[in-house]
Structures are given as C-alpha cells and as structure tokens.
C-alpha cells in the first residue's frame, strides 16, 4: 500500500513538473489507479508458470469429469460382478445399446428434439412474461399493490396441481405442456426482476431523472442495465425450472419426449431406457445451463 502511495506522489511530481500543456492546474491523472485492475490480470497471465492448479483449465475440466467417471466405473463393476441383478440395475453397456436401438428407430432424436423444443418455447414465453410482470411490479407501486399478492399465491401452487386443469382445458396437445413449462419459467424471472428493480440504487435513478431521463428512456438507460445481472441469474434459474416442469408435463400426458420415454419405459419395465432418459435429461440440462452461464459471465463483466 505504501509503495503505491509513493508511486502516486512521484507521478504527481512528474506530472506537475512535466506539465500538461493546455490543461488546468487541477489535472493529475493517476495512471496507476486505472492500471491497477489490469495489472492484476496481467500478473496472472505473465506468471503462467505459477498459476495455481485450481486455476488451470485442464484441471477444472478434468476435475469436473472425475466424479462421473468414477460413478461409471463403479456402475460397470457392480453390474459385471452381478452384485445387483441386471433386472434392477442395467449395465452402462445396456444403456448404451438402448440408446443405439432408439436412435436406429429414429425415436431418440425425435424425443430429444421435441423435449428441447418444448423447453425452449415454454421458457421463452415464461421468461418474457416474467420480465414484463417483474418490471410492472418492480417499477410501479400500484402494480406492486395490485399484482404482487395474487402472483405470490399462484406461485405457491405446486407444479403438478396445474396438470389436470391444463389437460382438461388444453387437451393433450403441445399447448398444455408449453403452458406448464411457461408457468415454471415465469416465477424465477418474475421474482428476481421485481426484487432487483425495487433495489436499484435510488441515487442513480435520481441522477438519471435530473439529467432529463424518464419513462422508457430512464428504464433502458439506468434501471434495466442495473438489474441485468439479476435478470440473467433469474433466467438461469428459470431454465432449470423449465426442464423440471417439462418432465412433469410429459410424464402425465404425452406421446413423445423424454418424459414420455420415462413413463412408457416404466410401463414396459425397460430400466435401460429409464436410465438413458435420466442421463439425457442431466446432459441437456447441464448443457443449456452452461450456455446461459457463459452469457451470465459476459453480462456480469459488461454490466456491473
């Protein structure tokens, strides 16, 4: 700290001695202040040989894959040693064969695609509505008074409670499933956005108003950027929620999709396919979450 202080003084002396022609006396750019954050990054880069193990990408990826690999090995051992009968626990090879079989029948691709499509459409609808309602409740006191209690009550309804109603109203088509997924995606977005908007720095908002911003311009210039990081973390939660609600919807009334694969395989006793569906849901959920996670990192870097 003290070395920094010395640096400051030195640079000030240089600055005033060297003189900044045309600039008023008040000028003393403190280059080291701005450089400080960059310097930290550079230090990390230049000393690549001394990057701690937990910061190296091969270690991060390998470490993340370690537990799944161990699980796979143990799973294979348990089944080859027949510690558990294969009727209760199919071997990894059987699950793989089931996957090949379903691919050859053209079903696996179709099921995965239809499930992903439902999640993406339902998630988009739910997220957009969540943003809208979150904005109304978070920005307007009247909106808060009128809407917040009702939405809070609807949020308290367990997801499965909607299924019978949606099936009667919207039949077994796509609408009922997408609606259920949209309900699932709506609430994480709504909750985070409305809460974040209520807590936007009042001083910044006042400064925005003082410089002539209001209405939509104030929202896009000050409030929306201020809550973007929260919005993205809400979206990430909503996406996870969308996959949960997808399975709920497909388990209880579908003729296609990974949830249908689960319920159909339960009826036929095909444990290998049940395992396959579970593994696929895990992979798809993690993949989409990682994509939003990358976006979240970018947003946090850019907007905070």
């Amino acid at each position: 700290m003290s070395s920094n202080d010395n640096l400051t003084t030195n640079e000030r002396v240089q600055a005033s001695a060297g003189g900044y022609p045309g600039l008023p006396v008040a000028v003393d750019p403190r280059a080291e202040v701005a450089a400080r954050s960059d310097a930290a990054d550079r230090a990390a880069d230049s000393a690549a040989g001394r990057v701690p193990l937990t910061r190296r990408s091969w270690f991060i990826i390998g470490g993340g894959a370690l537990v799944p690999a161990i699980v796979l090995v143990v799973w294979q051992l348990v089944t080859t040693l027949e510690l558990v009968p294969v009727s209760q626990l199919p071997s990894p090879v059987m699950v793989w064969d089931a996957a090949i079989d379903l691919i050859q029948r053209g079903q696996l691709g179709q099921y995965t695609a239809i499930s992903t499509q439902r999640v993406l459409i339902g998630f988009s609808i739910g997220a957009v509505l969540g943003l809208l309602f979150g904005a109304v409740v978070g920005l307007s006191r009247l909106g808060d008074i009128l809407l917040a209690p009702s939405l809070g009550a609807i949020r308290a309804v367990p997801s499965l409670a909607w299924v019978p109603l949606l099936i009667i109203w919207l039949k077994y088509g796509e609408e009922s499933k997408i609606t259920l997924i949209a309900i699932g995606a709506f609430f994480p977005v709504y909750t985070t956005v409305s809460a974040a908007l209520r807590h936007v720095d009042r001083q910044l908002v006042e400064a925005g108003r003082a410089f002539g911003l209001n209405g939509a311009r104030l929202f896009t210039t000050v409030q929306l950027p201020a809550v973007l990081p929260s919005v993205v973390s809400g979206l990430r939660l909503a996406l996870a929620q969308a996959w949960l609600f997808l399975v709920a919807a497909e388990l209880l009334g579908a003729s296609m999709g990974l949830g249908f694969l689960l319920s159909d395989s339960q009826n036929n006793g095909r444990l290998d396919r049940i395992f396959l569906a579970i593994v696929l849901l895990a992979l798809l959920g993690k993949l989409t979450d990682s994509l939003v996670g990358l976006f979240e990192r970018w947003v946090n870097k850019r907007w905070s």
Binding site: Q203, L204, E206, A207, A210, T221, V222, P225, A226, R302, W303, S304
Partner: peptide, 11 residues
C-alpha cells in the same frame, strides 16, 4: 446538478 457523490453509471 452536481451531486455529493459522483453517481456515475458503473456500466
């Protein structure tokens, strides 16, 4: 207005 705090938009 020049406020007591800078009140700059951080992003």
């Amino acid at each position: 207005v020049g406020f007591q705090e800078p009140r700059l938009l951080p992003w």
